[in-house]
């Protein structure tokens, strides 16, 4: 049975972070919920109306309370277990639908906040590309049914997409192989043509890395650092990127782009990875210089000094980089 509990003014029903499976209804008095806005860090206060439920989401989803619940005026609060709450809800379809709408609005809201952050940071790999790769994956694994599904969706969603003509080629191959389904399976794609297919896919991947890398370099030289960074971000998530012959240069370039965007910690991360595996690379001084310069921004003067001095030990270091390194060293 749901029980009614009395709370004195100023007492706490629960704290943010508490774990509990209880759901509350305010019967009388006054309760305020306070939480921190995840976006602005400001505190948000909401008064609970008499008759209103609170603490529902955390109890149902069994996660920690997302807010503090504090009593403002002496209050009577009905405390329910999840099964008791469910019983009440089952008899009140309209009420439940209303709550569901509140939840879905909250979900939509927080979801779009998450997407906005992903957008700044990665602009995400093009969704049409992902759909295409999905089809290509299934095709290469001879799952023609699923490949066909993905390719057809591609054409439906992006009839004029960049890869539409390739998709049509694949689809005609798939229809061909489906029609031939009476012949033994291994002749659908004979050994030779399927191996050349794989070579084709491999070279596709490698080309794509080259293409992206050059376009990122172009963007940077035309001054569009953000775009260059975005392209690099999607490049490093491609399959086989770290096996590519240009991987060291990719890391170096990525680290430098991150530096220009003041992502100093990330610069240190990428360039340390570069320096660790490529100690004999001709541009290793450059990596050491940018690691040192990043450490200065991160207020780690000893680290900054160490890396800058190491970069100066390379005879191949460019004159202006040398000058900059010395300048920073003096300022430390």
């Amino acid at each position: 049975m749901p029980k009614v509990t009395s709370y004195r003014a100023q007492s706490i029903v629960y704290f943010e972070g508490d774990k509990s499976s209880k759901i509350h209804i305010l019967k009388s008095g006054s309760v305020v919920l306070s939480t921190t806005d995840i976006e602005t860090g400001e505190s948000i206060r909401n008064l609970v109306q008499v008759g209103e439920f609170f603490g529902v989401g955390s109890a149902l989803g069994s996660y920690p309370r997302a807010e503090d619940a504090k009593v403002l005026k002496d209050a009577q609060i009905v405390v329910l277990s999840v099964p008791e709450f469910e019983e009440i809800m089952k008899k009140n379809a309209k009420l439940m639908l209303r709550m569901l709408k509140v939840f879905s609005t909250q979900l939509r809201d927080v979801h779009s906040k998450v997407q906005s952050l992903l957008d700044i940071d990665e602009k995400q790999v093009d969704v049409s590309d992902s759909l295409y790769y999905c089809g290509e994956y299934y095709f290469s694994h001879e799952n023609f049914e699923h490949a066909g599904y993905a390719f057809k969706k591609y054409l439906k969603e992006y009839p004029d997409g960049q890869r539409a003509s390739k998709v049509r080629d694949y689809l005609s191959q798939i229809t061909g192989s489906m029609e031939d389904s009476s012949v033994p399976e291994d002749s659908v794609i004979d050994g030779r043509s399927s191996s050349s297919f794989f070579e084709h896919v491999d070279s596709l991947g490698q080309d794509q890395i080259e293409t992206k890398f050059s376009s990122a370099k172009e963007k940077l030289s035309s001054g569009d650092v953000q775009q260059a960074y975005t392209i690099m971000k999607s490049l490093v998530s491609l399959d086989g990127a770290s096996e590519h012959s240009k991987w060291p240069e990719i890391l170096l370039f990525y680290g430098k782009t991150a530096y220009k965007l003041e992502k100093y910690q990330d610069t240190v991360t990428f360039l340390s990875e570069f320096a660790k595996n490529n100690s004999t690379h001709a541009r290793v001084f450059e990596a050491l210089f940018f690691i040192g310069a990043s450490y200065r921004h991160l207020n780690k003067k000893d680290h900054a000094r160490m890396f800058l001095q190491r970069s100066l030990q390379f005879s191949g270091i460019d004159e202006d980089m040398k000058a900059k390194a010395k300048e920073i060293l003096e300022s430390l």
């Binding site: 989401g57 149902l60 989803g61 939840f103 909250q106 979900l107």
Partner: peptide, 9 residues
């Protein structure tokens, strides 16, 4: 509703 609560978190 349970699923949404979980997803919101």
């Amino acid at each position: 509703m349970k699923l949404f609560s979980k997803r919101i978190y």
